[in-house]
Design a protein around this nucleic acid. Structure first.
Lengths: 228, 228
DNA sequence: TCAAAAGTGTTGCATCTACACCCATGG
DNA sequence: CCATGGGTGTAGATGCAACACTTTTGA
């Protein structure tokens, strides 16, 4: 049996919540046009690394990884989860033991999209950000994994106000509110939202305002350093 | 690499919150007196079973398993977690590949202690219930596993009021309150507690009262059937 | 001066907390 | 009739939701 780590990377582009997917082209077994397989980034666990280290490694292939929010959320162990025919065909391209059962540990991560560098990774595929409400059919049980990650992320978003992890270093409260509204899919009251954010002290105001906007410039904030 | 499932079984004996541990006697390598190894119940995942099935199997060795609350809570994958000398010595007694790295998926379970049958299980060891606040040194990283399970259980106890899963089928609200008080380690207000329990409708009153107690007999309740 | 988003307080309502006395039973 | 835990309501405090107008900037 093998063990892998799959990462659900969430990103936010000021309009939509996105998930990073990997696309790989491969010849279909029936010799017709090449097929495209889409999946979450992930990799087999190496002999000497911990699960967290493995998740970080997968992440590092894709992002600059400074201060990235990363969290284990569930482990998926259905005996047949990689045995589907469509998946097998594809797995044979790059796995030493494609037929082996794989248990995968799911992590989710909050990524500032500016930190994302679309370098050709060792996964040897193209990456793309996809709207979380429009995810295509993925390999294995990866759709389930995304669903569950999203579910947990939503809970932790409201419980811990961790949304700023998806924004650039400097952000306005309106940006943050907008992000919450999109992720939770409901409108929020501006004044209540601001009270709420400011009482939990995750963020702190900079001595700096927006520039060059065609309206009253907004106060900029940054995440508060948890250390100290 | 191997995969295992370890189960933290919580039980309640009307006074303390307990965890079920397995004890195995074995000869120390230095030929002195036999040593006792204490650990959580658990087993290697079989080729054809899912993680949930594996957890159920482990549980079934130990309890009657009717309607048992069982929940995956975290996966532990430190590369050295079973490589400690004291653990290796013991592992060699019953594992085909004691030297192999093992990733373990943690489940916790709420058990009515009346459902527990101390049959000699295939783990070939004695079982015992231990006060959760007095857990001895366990094999591997099992102390960490218990700590984390307890932490999550506490949160879910207050969030979902699942405490009755630890009580007999018929119970009084005072019993339930007492249980909460012990697990959360703080006193609760009787009236507020009852309001709180009754508004979430997990439990329903029976047409039956306590008998043979030397005070006003209390109303008995049972868990409400979620189905329907 | 206009458009566009920023920023700011208060009130009513719902929820939570604190609190004390009478009741039913067995001995 | 006494001891023991069972069972019940209310008032004050706190927290949350609803709500509208003024400000600053660039064009």
């Amino acid at each position: 049996m093998d063990i892998s780590v799959d990462c659900v990377l969430f990103g936010f582009d000021e309009k939509k919540l996105k998930v990073l997917l990997i696309e790989q082209r491969h010849a279909g077994s029936d010799r017709k046009l090449p097929k495209i397989q889409t999946a979450l980034p992930g990799d087999l666990l190496k002999e000497k690394e911990s699960l967290d280290e493995c998740a970080k490694r997968v992440l590092k292939e894709l992002t600059s990884l400074k201060g990235i929010y990363l969290k284990q959320f569930y482990t998926f162990g259905d005996p047949k989860r990689v045995q589907d025919l469509k998946d097998q065909e594809w797995l044979r391209l790059f796995r030493a033991h494609p037929e082996r059962r794989v248990i995968t540990v799911g992590y989710y991560s909050l990524v500032k999209m500016e930190d994302f560098t679309p370098k050709a990774s060792s996964f040897a595929g193209k990456t793309k950000w996809v709207d979380v409400y429009n995810i295509p059919e993925l390999a294995f049980d990866h759709n389930d994994i995304v669903d569950r990650a999203l579910d947990i992320f939503r809970h932790e978003l409201v419980a811990d106000n961790i949304g700023f992890e998806l924004l650039p270093e400097k952000f306005t409260l309106s940006q943050l509110q907008h992000l919450h509204e999109i992720i939770l899919d409901k409108k929020l009251d501006k004044r209540n939202f601001r009270k709420n954010i400011l009482k939990g002290d995750h963020v702190t105001a900079l001595e700096e305002k927006q520039q060059g906007v065609l309206h009253k410039p907004a106060q900029l904030y940054k995440r508060k350093n948890k250390s100290k």
